[in-house]
Design a protein around this nucleic acid. Structure first.
Lengths: 212, 212
DNA sequence: CCTACCGATCGGTAGG
DNA sequence: CCTACCGATCGGTAGG
């Protein structure tokens, strides 16, 4: 009777867990394959057949694990949003002057861009392929992300460490510079991601001009 | 006979000139309409029917004035390349210290991005829709453009005006910051293009940190 | 009976 | 300058 109970209660649980694990594993595989292709060619130019072929399957598998083509793109955006938000949490942890924290933020952002270059390409090129609602969410998250850095910048001005100026424009300038490597960075080049991130943090904070 | 000669020689010229003017005018119209739509939705998402409808025509007109869909995109890229190259010619004209010239270059680039925002969107998002050859030309032009600014930067280091650092990375940092407004700038916002360009030039050259 | 998956084909729409 | 139409290819779904 105990055995019976177990057979009825735990076995389905184990099966269910295994099934869910497999589901999540294959979904991750789909997102990885899709990210590679979409980054290289653009969302519209990649067919569901391309994505499944990249994994050695036919597209029915993709449609078994994903509702439709849009869900693939949306889950890529969700992964990106989460990664950057987590990175910012880490960089903004207490410790150091505003200048030091800003250097951490700049480096974190630039490194994320270069280490997940495919994501950055997709994020900055294929946002307009999302639905209205999804785009609104992405825009809202981006605004929150920028706002947190603007607040840091405003603190730095108050502390007398940053030049007085509009925090919005200042952060747009910083983030823009840090985003751009997605268009040109190659990990095989003579500059490592760390080289670039450090050089950018240095130049952006100290300026191009030699201190007078 | 003189009249005859004129009728035979000049009339076709006049007709030819008028016809060519009309051709160029409509081609410009097509490029303008296409730029608006492609910037908003992406090249793959815009149909030739969309472009012709935007002008109040059917697509046969587009195919009369353009060889195919690709030619539209390519001619947009040619316009962009030429505009930026001309802007750089102007900004690099002799006059002023390296610091002053660099400020001119930064402002010119940022202003071009904001004043032709649709071009910047297309240039940075739809380059992968060009043919292999076209992409090679675009890449080559971009490299030349950046190289000219790198040379200016190297001069500024020699003159003791810029902090010593890799000119390639330094210019990537500057240009990246100047490009980014294409993703967020709105001419209706509280910042004018001139505001943004000046603030960026200031921040990029002097740095975020207050001079010690 | 369910699952995971295949070969084939659907309705629609693209560039030309 | 329009209507009508092509070869092809798309995203998504059927039966087995």
């Amino acid at each position: 009777m105990d055995m019976e109970a177990q057979r009825e209660s735990s076995k389905p649980n184990i099966r269910g867990r295994i099934k869910q694990q497999k589901t999540e594993l294959i979904q991750e595989e789909i997102l990885d394959a899709a990210s590679r292709l979409i980054a290289a060619r653009g969302f519209r130019a990649v067919t569901v057949d391309d994505i499944s072929a990249e994994m050695g399957f036919t597209k029915s598998i993709v449609y078994y694990y994903m509702k439709n083509k849009n869900e693939i793109l949306w889950r890529i955006f969700e992964r990106i949003d989460k990664t950057y938000a987590n990175g910012l949490d880490e960089a903004l942890k207490p410790g150091g002057s505003p200048t030091e924290v800003l250097a951490r933020v700049v480096k974190m952002h630039a490194l994320n861009v270069m280490m997940h270059q495919e994501w950055a390409m997709i994020y900055n090129r294929d946002e307009n392929e999302l639905t209205e609602d999804q785009r609104a969410t992405v825009t809202s998250n981006r605004r929150k992300y920028n706002k947190r850095i603007q607040d840091l910048y405003a603190d730095g001005i108050k502390a007398g460490e940053f030049r007085d100026g509009d925090p919005f424009l200042a952060v747009c300038c910083l983030i823009g510079a840090c985003n751009w490597p997605y268009t040109w960075f190659r990990s095989s080049s003579k500059y490592s991601a760390e080289d670039v991130a450090s050089a950018f943090a240095d130049q952006l904070i100290k300026g191009a001009a030699k201190a007078a």
